[in-house]
Design a protein around this nucleic acid. Sequence first.
DNA 1: GTATTATCTAAGTCT
DNA 2: TAGATAATAC
Length: 666
Amino acid sequence: MDYLNQLNESQRNAVVSTEGPVMVIAGAGSGKTRVLTYRIAHLIAKGVDPFSILSLTFTNKAAQEMKERIGKIVGYSDSRNIWMGTFHSVFARILRSEAEKIGYPSNFTIYDTQDAKNLIKTILKEQGLDEKVYKPGLVLNRISTAKNNLISPQAYATNTTIQSEDIQSAKPKLGLVYQIYSDRCFKSGAMDFDDLLYKTNVLLRDFPDVLYKYQHRFKYVLVDEYQDTNFSQYVIVKKLVAVYQNVCVVGDDAQSIYAFRGANIQNILNFEKDYPEVKTFKLEQNYRSTKNIVNAANSIIENNKDQIKKNVYTDNEVGEKIKVYKAATDNEEGKMIANLIYDTQLSKQAKNSHFAILYRTNAQSRAMEESLRRKNIPYKIYGGLSFYQRKEVKDLLSYFRMVINPKDEEALKRIINYPARGIGNTTIDKLTITANNNETDIWNVINNLNKFNTGLNTGAQTKIGEFVAMISSFVTQLKTKNAFDLGNEIAATSGLLKDLYTDRTPEGISRYENIQELLNGLKEFTETENELEEDVTPRGLAEFIQDVALLTNADDEKVEDRDKVTLMTIHSAKGLEFPYVYIVGLEENLFPSQMALSSRVDLEEERRLFYVAITRAEKEVALSFASSRYKWGNLIFCEPSRFIEEINEEHLEMMFSVQSPVLSRQ
DNA sequence: GTATTATCTAAGTCT
DNA sequence: TAGATAATAC
């Protein structure tokens, strides 16, 4: 057990206290991942069955890396059997195997945000509600919040507080929309992201045998980034560990940055109340960053009222001060950062992968991207429009989805007339109305056209018949063909490939290439063996599509991306570290975001976000702001962020001479 | 029913 | 600025 010698005392205590509830409060860079990794390895070394360990991580990539490291210690045959992944992916897997109990097919579709918004738009139209009042994004947020707090549509409609809020905001029909939205998802055999947690709760609540099974299966449960769990996740964990109480949560209240998505810091603050027997360990020594960085970060977080007091310190060298740069415009800022990276690479002999540019919003990436490209510095961008969200990719994926689950209404609507086959909006509207009137799904209607009174002419009926025949033939091939072969077949037979090929504009060519890339991905997927079981059947399309919706920003890294400068939002950077970090766009109304200025709670979350950004750095941090920036095509003027002032000035070095009204106060 | 053009409006963060 | 939707012509 010589791995125990690689830990400091509090880390070691957190690792070897395997029984009963444990909470680890881990400051930034204090070796949290190391503790989790060794704790699991230690459990296995002690003889715990890997199948009885459940470890919930923040990204699937983190899970992958952790498995790898555990494998190195205890062997891969054991490490591969640990249940490990994000809340969403682990419980999606469990839901698939228990789906019939709650009336869902095991091949249910996972709706992404776009699908969900489209469905909401459809419902708003049907109900004659104004999209300008009921903004789809806001409606979805409202539904999401309800689900994350385990409020059913029925409870929503009868809850007086919620009802008066909705009447106050002139949206009294929100409850109805929520109800219809849930029904429609159910009829389509679809769950959205929040459903994966919500339906897990329903399953564990209504089926004691299922609860019993998983309570006894998962004898040891570990939760990373516990400060970012919401109520729905909290209840799942609480139920699962109720029997053995071997629960270990790791987190840092100072790094809680997901309140907007329902995360509740109280989960960490109340842990000691929920589990009176809890053993709490604090990891306060930072191994990642220089003294300047650690102390600067501490001086920021001191401005927050809500926090667990801790003393994060480091024995590392003092290091360089944090440099602050000013640029005239957002584009100038990009150029300046690219130049700084270029110079630092030369002077410090640093690799591209040692650099990260972090920003508050995805829209800021463009100026950075452009200047890096001009200087021939290789970079990779996380987030923004992911590969799988591009129109052409989503179109082909929608074919896949529909072949696996023909009831998937959003997929059907995307592809029934793409490529154009003469089934227009009027026809689709008639089909939707028929489906609604008969309380069924559109697939059932078009698959049994003669049984329903759709009012369609024979021409439209013939075209629909051809579409149904095509999808049905794909469905038949699902059992015999592997993912790659069937994927190719669908791309060709549907006419999608041909449609894209005829478009010879640069955008058209790029769309065609994206489809090729997706098919290549399918090929690779098909050729990779099944990781878990001794299953030797070829991997099919269903398996492929299951994972796609749940890939996080950090998950789809390619091998050729290894040595590149990283561009990402601060949110995505959570849990990562880089020697040189550039935090850009430090301006009022951008960071902190304009929307966070009105309440202390929101502002404190922005501040924690800034804390997270700075603590990503090992050696050097640079901050920058621009005096003007384009927003919606207009030039707006900007003031430096208040966060710059909040850093203790002994850790700062201003790299510009012009007196700015805000900074001169220092 | 389809293709092209004009107009609008949205960029806050993620699963 | 750019993607999404509405309006228009075919």
